[in-house]
Write a protein that binds this DNA or RNA. Structure first.
Lengths: 112, 112
DNA sequence: AAATATACATAATTTTCTTATGCATATAAA
DNA sequence: TTTATATGCATAAGAAAATTATGTATATTT
């Protein structure tokens, strides 16, 4: 997890991508899914996740739906129509970025 | 340049990689080289670059050598021995990170 | 002559995290 | 059975790392 700080700026995109694939998720579920998918490489902290979810909701990209499971509450988030569009944009941006960085740091290239 | 904010956290690694490939560079040169290598995708701002160079120097990863060219000064930076080691580490971390993110956002995978 | 490029630097602000803390219920382990 | 861990939300204080705005000065191009 030494590269934890590299993911700065990509949290929103990660959340949106997960919701695009899963339709409907709650916060805790997202943290676990990311941990699982990245084999522990990325750990979304709650202090980052919840404010991010609130912001995405405030920006109109996510809708919330509160559910009660047993005696505990869950907040299910899903993409709005606008959120779906933005997700596509952000995923394209992310792939551009990854390609660019890949090129920059690829050991095959010496950057003269 | 919509993805400009995604590169947060990777500036140090970019600088180190460039210096690994080029032995010796000055600040302005680095900004131009990055712009060129990324076809304008990444623009290192001075407000980010110079503090970063100073920090890398303070941390013992870079050595400085001031040169006077015409009537203007340049500060040439190069990797120290320790800097070379750290560069290798950071490049590995970066590649791990890129692989992880690639996997997370790759459109071929639906993340159930 | 004026605009742009080269070359450094720092301060104020913003963005985006981490770390710490708090509350509460459910389940597993000792 | 009580204690630790897991589930589930949230926010506040602080740190890290950028952006934006300035400032200074020389060199080159228009």
């Amino acid at each position: 997890m030494g590269n934890q700080k590299l993911y700065k700026g990509s949290l929103q995109t990660i959340i949106l991508k997960l919701l695009e694939s899963n339709d409907k998720m709650y916060g805790y579920e997202i943290t676990q899914k990311v941990k699982e998918l990245t084999k522990g490489e990325l750990n979304i902290t709650e202090g980052a996740l919840y404010p991010a979810l609130h912001k995405l909701e405030a920006d109109g990209l996510l809708d919330v739906e509160v559910a009660k499971v047993g005696n505990r509450l869950r907040k299910y988030y899903k993409l709005t129509e606008n959120g779906t569009k933005e997700t596509a944009n952000k995923l394209l941006e992310m792939q551009e970025f990854l390609k660019t960085m890949q090129h920059l740091v690829n050991p095959k290239f010496s950057l003269e």
